[in-house]
Design a protein around this nucleic acid. Sequence first.
DNA 1: ACTTGCCACGAACACCGTTCGTAGATAGAA
DNA 2: TTCTATCTACGAACGGTGTTCGTGGCAAGT
Lengths: 264, 264
Amino acid sequence: MFVASTLFVMSTSPSAADPADPGAAAVPPPPWRKAARPSSRRPLSTGAVVEAALRIMAEEGLAGVTMRRVAQALDTGPASLYAHVRDKQDLHELMLDEVFADAPVPVPDPGRWREQLREHTVAQVRVLLDNPGSAEIAMRTMIPTTPRLMAQMDAQIGILRAGGMTPEEAGAAGDLLALYGTAFAFEQELHGGPGQASGAEDAARRIGEITGYLRSLPEGVFPHLAALVGGMAPGRGDPMRHFEYGLDAIIAGIERAAGRESGT
Amino acid sequence: MFVASTLFVMSTSPSAADPADPGAAAVPPPPWRKAARPSSRRPLSTGAVVEAALRIMAEEGLAGVTMRRVAQALDTGPASLYAHVRDKQDLHELMLDEVFADAPVPVPDPGRWREQLREHTVAQVRVLLDNPGSAEIAMRTMIPTTPRLMAQMDAQIGILRAGGMTPEEAGAAGDLLALYGTAFAFEQELHGGPGQASGAEDAARRIGEITGYLRSLPEGVFPHLAALVGGMAPGRGDPMRHFEYGLDAIIAGIERAAGRESGT
DNA sequence: ACTTGCCACGAACACCGTTCGTAGATAGAA
DNA sequence: TTCTATCTACGAACGGTGTTCGTGGCAAGT
């Protein structure tokens, strides 16, 4: 019964607009084989949509995550997704939340707050870098509304409070660290190349061009820049080293700013 | 003479393709009036395209800057733009360059490098904030290839060198400052609302929602976050104050990192 | 058994960036 | 001057995009 009616709809759907249709439709599709396919489990929950979207992002980058592409992966049409996801933006935020699914949520330890802050921030950035595309979402979201991201933020502020900061100081410092971490990860995935995009190649070409241009210029036009490009290689070293340079600078600055006001 | 030949060509061009054409063509187009329109000044240079694009960005945000929209503003078709601009990305970079047209390029003064660095960075961010949409371009560009942006970067590195840093230190510090400035401006324009977008309203709604959600939770789930939202208003104060907090922290950190290695 | 609400989804709408081919203008050569 | 070659402008179209509408079948409440 179920199968039959389904098949009926499928085979006649083009002519469904024409109720008075005899058997004249081009080849009455004998679909014995087909029967199994449409009834083969279609849960199609929010979770399934997010999961499919994440898989696509991992393989084809964030730009590959289109509603049509996700729908196709779940073999259905794009309209079906909107029952489980409000927007594309909403889908993005759910993806970001899922990405942080197994990131640890540290409990603040006053005696170790500096190390904890460093480790926590590094861990967050590592999550973003491990999931290319997620940093772009994070950049565009900034105010977290999903539970896991709120837990991360809460932990971070907890650590800063454990370091003796006032709520205001902790808020400002947390903003700064989150902004830096997110922006850094985004920049990395921009010209680090998420596997598929021309990122790395493009970046290399660009700094090649810029080097050539600088050399072609009369000496002393951009002297400091010219001095720099000499000792520069495109993708040298662990990006994390670079990140930690900035992180340490920021933490030191934060501490100093807090100490200046609270006297410690 | 000129006019006559122009008219001749125009009036006969349709029938030129069909040599065996009698007088039957639908109204042999008498184009006296027409002659003035196509010749009515259409320079359509790269500069004009960029200028139109910037005007649109100011009025409708970066999302409003579509090739079709820009073409319409110059009343032509989108295809015409591609003679003066390689890409949409190319157009974006030209726009960003133009935005920095009258930003001052400081000459490094060793005795004042800290103040200079601060002022220069603040000025750059102010330019981005004054031109909503530009920060998003800057965020997505990162490696400058246009002359004015290179001049800005050169000056910045010059200031850092004047502060006694090695080229490597200056490069890292410059990266960090540029990343921070760009990301900050982008975040501001995200939920600051570029006049047209729902930015501010959306941000307010979001922190309203999040506050309500936090209150609805059993006490002590996100304790630090809950303590924070109490003393938080959506758009309080000058965003620049916020920026300068982070900037001072970063400059202090940079200085410390440089001193640590070079011994000053 | 009937109604009601919900999920799936085909079709369509209004856009988007970009390319192709052609017509007109212009500049250089003869 | 006249012929040719090169360049600009641009209408039309291609292959995408996010999102909405309306319908049709299913399942649960009454």
